[in-house]
Amino acid sequence: MAFLLRPVYFAGKKAVEGIAGIGEVIMILIYTLRTLPYTFKNFDLTIKQMISVGVTSVPLLFVTSIFTGMVATVQAEFQFRDLVADKFVGTAACKMILIELGPILTALVLAGRVGSALAAEIGSMREKEELDAYTVLGLDPFRYLALPRFLAFIVMVPSLTVISNCLALIGGWIVCVLALDITTYTYYTGMQYLFNFMDLFAGIIKAFVFGVIIFVLGYYHGLNAGAGAKGVGLATMNVVVSSSVMILIADFFLAALLFQ
């Protein structure tokens, strides 16, 4: 009988752990939001994080965005060749990039680059008792560690998304001019055609939500990292996997919400 109950026990245990994990993620977010009144008190810490999250990610985004823009444009031209006028290549590229490719690509790249770094940093601080040291000194770790990172993520992910959008559109333009025999004028007018400010705005809103997701999951996995190199390694992997999945799920719901 016991062996029959084992799967039930295992499933129940996993379910409880999952619910506890969701609860902890929500609590991290609440505790961080509670420190928002201190935003400008230690703003130097936030600036440092913004440089680490944002500025240092630009070179990587430069490469990924330019090439994504190029691929998207080539595919748009290839799929609709002989079906629609050339100017619609610019329209398709602009719509794709602003609504989906830019925000999603930026978020996934940042989940891999800075989300994993956040988990590794917090995990290693926890193991070295630095988090306890903050508490013992009467300093709230959420105010000094979580808040600057949270602000950096919610500001820099949308900002980087805008940069990524621009770079991808430039990539599309380059490939049009150099390989597809489409003029700058045609590409540019195509981009303007059917352009809706909501496309850009929705992309930025999405990026903001993705920034929150990467931060909160990075912090959560850092706080719950196991001991040693293996524990920290596992935490970094978990944050990339979980935030990538959550970004894609959130993207679906946001699309349904913003474009209904």
């Binding site: 070295k128 008792e129 630095e130 306890d132 040291a133 013992v136 000194l137 009467g138």
Partner: peptide, 14 residues
């Protein structure tokens, strides 16, 4: 908290 200080095993310096 302000009455107490603690020296951690590995120092736990920032």
């Amino acid at each position: 908290r302000k009455k107490m200080g603690m020296l951690f095993q590995m120092g736990a310096l920032f």
